[in-house]
């Protein structure tokens, strides 16, 4: 293999890459917040009695979990305008990511809720807590704590999945990579650098989640 790597050729494009990183980070943060919130609501709906709502959420979760993200993205970006819902590429991408993460986090958080012993619910009810109070104060905190690692991994997977958004011309990190390699044809160098950036983002995100965990579950600190 006689090939000289020309990583230096990428330097003029550092601005573009930086902007790509920024969009990917913003997408990841917004998706994580909205996705986890919706997931909590979805899990609350799923955990209750078998109502129409809980069934509907169940169907939604199964539909999203059993189809590829890129197809969901194309459906939202290309398909929805034909029924009158027009979205920019960025909006469509964000919507697809939130919908995707919400489905997975619904399932993950539901598993956490189901792991809470029934006795705790009964005790809370006996103490006179309302249904909402029971859910937000007794059930949810330990449930979230239990599934925290799984939720972290899923959020990171969705962040990495955002690479696909370049396919509908959202200007994120992979889009920057595609653009640069179309200019200087150094495809391997470009994708190598971008891959390393994604790896760093994933590591950073994991550390960020650890930090949030530290502040979110203070009672854990006391124990350990």
């Amino acid at each position: 293999m006689d090939y000289t790597f020309q990583f230096g050729e990428l330097l003029p494009y550092s601005d573009l890459i930086a902007r790509g990183v920024l969009s990917t980070v913003i997408l990841a943060i917004v998706t994580t917040v909205l996705g986890c919130l919706l997931g909590t609501l979805g899990a609350a709906a799923r955990a209750g009695k078998q109502t129409f709502l809980s069934r509907a959420v169940g169907v939604y979760v199964e539909l999203i979990r059993n189809t590829p993200f890129i197809v969901q993205l194309f459906f939202i970006f290309f398909g929805l305008p034909t029924i009158g819902i027009k979205l920019t590429a960025g909006e469509a991408g964000l919507l697809a990511m939130v919908i995707n993460l919400a489905a997975y986090s619904t399932e993950i958080i539901r598993a956490g809720i189901e792991s809470i012993p029934k006795g705790q619910l009964e005790a809370a009810r006996t103490l006179g807590l309302s249904r909402t109070q029971t859910f937000t104060r007794v059930v949810l905190p330990p449930a979230l704590e239990k599934i925290y690692p799984a939720l972290t991994s899923q959020c990171i997977i969705v962040m990495l999945g955002s690479a696909v958004l370049s396919q509908i011309s959202v200007e994120e990190l992979t889009f920057a990579a595609n653009f640069i390699q179309s200019r200087n044809f150094l495809s391997f160098e470009v994708y190598m650098v971008i891959t390393v950036i994604y790896l760093l983002l994933a590591i950073l995100m994991r550390q960020g989640f650890k930090l949030i965990h530290y502040f979110m579950f203070p009672n854990l600190r006391a124990r350990s």
Binding site: A163, V164, T174, S187, Y191, M192, T195, L199
Partner: peptide
């Protein structure tokens, strides 16, 4: 820790390199 899409690109372009 890296997107599958990037892995695809790297294999695709790396091997031809």
């Amino acid at each position: 820790g890296t997107p599958l899409l990037m892995q695809l690109f790297l294999v695709f372009f790396g091997l031809s390199l």
